[in-house]
Design a protein around this nucleic acid. Structure first.
Lengths: 338, 338
DNA sequence: CTGTTAGCGCATTCAG
DNA sequence: CTGAATGCGCTAACAG
């Protein structure tokens, strides 16, 4: 209750006329202490306002109950959903979450990893700032050398060898292309059969896979659909600018496929900007565009279950922490929502 | 580099033929060590893959570089924005964030506080599960007794005496009501002059303030606008259900005012469900309904700058941590966006 | 069931 | 500028 010094186990010991270790046991392994002394100790702890010192405990036991989450953008709804899921499940296993939002900055990402190593985190769930193969941050070595479990989420470091939970990106591309082919493109005529894909960075593995999915589906179909690809980034303004520039130079395509939520929104905004009714062509996306049904709007999207992805990541991390040596990859497949 | 034991300061000391303390100094207060030995030590540290042990350091210095963030819903975009802002600014002051998503569960909230006390967090930014005055969790005592700085964010514990960053809720209500009066309600006739307010929980201080703002504005206007209030919670399904029930029993009001993003969306969905064109009446809300402009939809809203609120909260926390004894309250005013 | 001893890794005394 | 001793708070390991 006193605001001055912190109450330690020793204070309680003095208070009840026992030794430290007995107090420690009464608090952590109650069954090892006689019922009445246990009572006395626990009551004293409560009355004195005892708060265990997590640092001292972790130092002694050299195992922390900490899990790190490193992500580039907590304000991306898909990531927020995954983080919520991780947080919820971590709590069930008595782990606290240390969160790092790297804001797309590799330097911050590296510092985040160092912090986690420093805090002896039992594991990290990592979604790097980019998944381009060139990105080979030097913390990979530090991570691989240590005993910290690692699970990558959504974005992966090329060839890092860590476990991962990723989306089925090829399938997502395939699925959207299939939708476009079956329902849409077949109904159009001649040179209208043009699909505009608005992708992320040209080197992004995720974008490449999604595009591969599209191409694989088109190839199987023996159609004469032409694909134009705009490379950019996973944000709205750039996607909007790219699409605007495209529309200024080429005829309106039969369909547009946006590779994530923000890209799709950017493309739609560009259409509007050019005075083109979005219903005059077909737009599909990846990731949910929430609440549009309320306004009678429907944009078909391939959506992935972020809650599930988060859970899978945490479970994978726990098995790694339990000693499973071989890295595993879990693939989460989405579904087309119309 | 070795995967076995962690390398400590002592290993480095042995390696370079110095003692622990010199190594410690070379790493933390380089100016206290001769240049060449400092070099040797720092190089050895790098080569051996030394990682400082944050626990040992914190234990010794009894000051952690940890700030706790406790919130009910990281997946609420407004909260996500605030958390991102907190995270970004905390990093600038070399603090790491420990995040707790309480998921609306008071028990989890209490555990989160205990964890933070246990980790000797320098401060907490707290947004409790509810702001109803009845909610007086017993961790308040523990918090007040200790030396941890506390700043409440958005939602506050009634009479807790902690610093806070809150929204100007009265003003938000006033502002929306003003808009409705000036632009809208005056144009309607007789018994059509009915405003439906869809609020949060009946005891929520925030909802009460927003409602007070509405009533104050209406009172000042000497108008004959009647207000119906639906109490509920800050989520979509309940708001939708309440509004649906209202529409089943009463004539369509001249306007609907939703007290947060999800409530407004719920109300709009109820309208749609009842086959009522939302443009046949006036709908205003609090919180942004993002991206609707892309679809040519406009729902006027009072929006608050979450990024700023987060920054203010962190700054307030830092001043508290620096010893400022008197609690302060910062009020963030929103603006009407049409 | 309880106590003694010892040490986790680091940084603060105080001496050289 | 460098070192020796000491302790932060807690809990193994081994007694008793």
């Amino acid at each position: 209750m006193s605001a001055g010094k912190r109450v330690t186990i020793a204070d309680i010991a003095r208070h009840v006329g026992m030794t430290n270790i007995t107090v420690s046991r009464a608090l952590n392994r109650p069954e090892m202490v006689r019922a009445d002394t246990r009572e006395r100790i626990q009551r004293a702890a409560r009355e004195l306002g005892y708060v265990p010192n997590a640092f001292a405990r972790a130092l002694k036991r050299s195992d922390s109950r900490l899990i790190g989450v490193v992500t580039a953008s907590i304000d991306n709804p898909f990531y927020a959903e995954m983080i919520k899921s991780i947080s919820r499940h971590a709590k069930q296993h008595d782990y606290a979450i240390m969160l790092f939002d790297t804001d797309g900055d590799p330097a911050l990402e590296s510092m985040a990893i160092d912090s986690l190593l420093s805090y002896q985190a039992a594991g990290v769930i990592l979604s790097p700032v980019t998944d381009e193969p060139d990105y080979q941050p030097d913390y990979i070595k530090r991570l691989a050398a240590g005993s910290m479990a690692v699970v990558q989420l959504d974005r992966t470091l090329h060839d890092s060898g860590f476990s991962a939970v990723v989306l089925d990106n090829v399938w997502a591309g395939d699925c959207a292309a299939h939708y476009l082919l079956e329902r849409v493109l077949v109904q159009r005529s001649g040179n209208q059969r043009r699909l505009l894909v608005v992708a992320g960075p040209e080197q992004s593995q995720i974008s490449r896979q999604r595009l591969a999915g599209v191409q694989q589906r088109l190839a199987g179909h023996e159609s004469d659909v032409a694909v134009d690809v705009l490379w950019g980034d996973y944000n709205l303004p750039l996607a909007q600018a790219e699409v605007a520039r495209y529309l200024a130079h080429y005829p309106v395509p039969a369909a547009i496929f946006g590779f994530n939520q923000l890209i799709t929104l950017g493309a739609l905004r560009a259409l509007r900007e050019h005075g083109i009714d979005r219903r005059s062509l077909d737009v599909v996306g990846i990731d949910r565009l929430p609440y549009l049904d309320i306004f009678g709007i429907s944009v078909p999207c391939v959506v992935h279950d972020g809650y599930r992805a988060g859970r899978e990541a945490l479970e994978l991390l726990l098995t790694q922490m339990a000693g499973e040596p071989s890295p595993r990859t879990v693939i989460v497949r989405g579904e087309l929502l119309q």
